[in-house]
Design a protein around this nucleic acid. Structure first.
Lengths: 114, 114
DNA sequence: ACAATACATACCCATATCGGTATGCGTCAA
DNA sequence: TTGACGCATACCGATATGGGTATGTATTGT
């Protein structure tokens, strides 16, 4: 077995910087593949492949217009990530760090006796 | 080149379910490796490897006590993820979906004429 | 009908992943 | 001192990734 498939969930899909870039671009509005290719610095097949991953986890929707494919953002799957990280919010506040430090010092003062 | 290294940033580190599980366990407090091994269903070397990744992106800190390594959570690197996803918050609200739909309908009504 | 355009897909390559087993090393206990 | 324990690291294997090039397919324009 290798790493979990990137198509598995939003966490994996979003771990790739290029895919985050695509989502950021799409956040401004619907765009065609060629549009995205122009905006990013990579070749079209690569963009298409990243779009496929995003499609498979439901982060983007497609609409066919003539020979164009217009991609649109669907942020809903990001909610899972948001909910998970949000639980850690208190963790990176200054207050939390200080509290931890104090606890730590108390613990060490308790364990050792010089 | 293959996929971006998992040690590259918090996004990659957290894409792995097992590593999220470790963080969740550590959120309850400091734990030794053996402790984590017992709590998760995998062998010790695997836990150690995941811990290494988490260490390298700064998501955990270690403390040596005798022959034990006590790991502690450091949520700070999660902040980057939080900030990124949070920008999309409006995206998965009901209101945003409705708004998009309306815009979409207006656009189609404007383009075609049946 | 034919060429051009817009994408998706098929391959190929190099790499790094996760899982597991074997091993090394420092610390503690007898 | 010797053995057990706690953990990290070295390997190995299978797999899937991201990058790229070549190619196929549908739609549009001439």
């Amino acid at each position: 077995m290798a790493r979990a498939a990137t198509t598995a969930d939003a966490f994996n899909a979003v771990a790739e910087p290029r895919r985050r870039q695509i989502l950021d671009l799409l956040a401004e509005g619907e765009r065609s593949v060629t549009d995205l290719v122009a905006a990013m610095g990579i070749v079209q097949p690569l963009v298409s492949k990243h779009l496929r991953v995003l499609r498979e986890v439901g982060l983007v929707d497609v609409r066919e217009v003539g020979r164009q494919r217009l991609y649109r953002l669907n942020g809903e799957p990001l909610r899972a990530i948001y909910d998970w990280v949000r639980a850690y919010e208190r963790t990176w506040t200054r207050r939390f760090d200080l509290m931890e430090t104090v606890i730590e010092e108390l613990k060490e003062r308790h364990d050792s006796d010089d």
